[in-house]
């Protein structure tokens, strides 16, 4: 469980740091970024986990999203892990940008050769929180989750599969129904095999239909000019239809003119951090 500090930069009164550690779930060295607000110097702070999208590392969010000022204001620690195991020398892992390295899809793989290392779901929900709580001044009962695109999918399934574990959840342009889109079908068949019933455990729309647990309040922002929205990779309408039927509270905002980039995230990250702070600081 030893942490190696890779970098530390003062930021918004606190510190933006990157650490490296040896992951037991993923059986490789993993990096993660952690933002420590000024409040963390004296108090225990809630933690928001941020899951990035396809091709991203821990760097994208911390350098592009502009989350630190608002996180400092509300006293939130933000943890941004990498998006997949790296350097595991699995055949084909670097062949495509939407599968393998940088495309862990936040599932626990059941298929060879991925199942040894590609256990991002367990890493995100179990190993990483333990590590964070052990090494930083956190309030272990106060955690929330958010993400972008594939990370949005990850955030939604983590929240839906673990009722009560995350106090708040939000997403930017999430892949809402991976079973029904080309990205999800490629990843799920690779990591989980051809039995589609096993896919359901990682599909937000399916999970929402059977959700029972403490009330969620889901905030979703989606750029209207997002090329992946028109390419039917994201399918938010399916999720909204299920949530409307199941009375799961969702505010879905279709933001005109915005695309799928971090410029879009940067524009609305404050609303999301406030959304998380409302529940984490309650």
């Amino acid at each position: 469980m030893a942490l190696t500090q890779v970098s530390s930069n003062k930021c918004a009164g606190g510190f933006q740091k990157v650490f490296e550690h040896e992951s037991t779930e993923l059986k490789c060295k993993m990096k993660f970024a952690v933002y420590l607000p000024p409040k963390a110097e004296t108090d225990k702070c809630p933690v928001m986990y941020w899951l990035s999208g396809l091709t991203c590392t821990e760097q994208n969010f911390i350098t592009k999203a502009g989350s630190q000022l608002t996180a400092a204001e509300h006293g939130l620690i933000i943890v941004a892990p990498d998006t997949s195991p790296r350097g595991c020398s699995i055949e084909g892992e670097d062949e495509s940008w939407d599968f393998g390295t940088g495309a862990g899809f936040y599932v626990d793989a059941t298929q060879e050769p991925w199942k040894t290392n590609y256990c991002m779901y367990s890493y995100i929900t179990e190993e990483l929180p333990k590590l964070i709580n052990a090494n930083f001044p956190t309030d272990p009962d106060k955690m929330s989750i958010s993400g972008h695109s594939m990370g949005g999918h990850g955030a939604l399934i983590c929240a839906l599969k673990n009722p009560g574990k995350y106090k708040a959840v939000s997403a930017f342009a999430p892949i809402c129904n991976p079973m029904q889109c080309p990205w999800g079908q490629k990843a799920f068949s690779g990591y989980l095999g051809s039995d589609r019933s096993t896919w359901e455990a990682y599909d937000a729309t399916v999970l929402a239909a059977s959700y029972s647990g403490p009330q969620l309040d889901i905030l979703i922002d989606q750029g209207r000019d997002d090329q992946f929205l028109s390419a039917s990779q994201l399918l938010p309408d399916n999720l909204i239809a299920v949530c409307s039927e199941k009375k799961i509270p969702v505010v879905f905002r279709l933001q005109p003119g915005y695309d799928h980039s971090y410029f879009f995230i940067y524009s609305f990250i404050n609303d999301h951090i406030k959304h998380h702070a409302k529940y984490l600081n309650a």
Binding site: R224, R253, Q255, P256
Partner: peptide, 8 residues
């Protein structure tokens, strides 16, 4: 008005 969907 912004384009916005509310499920509940």
């Amino acid at each position: 008005s912004p384009d916005l969907r509310i499920t509940v």
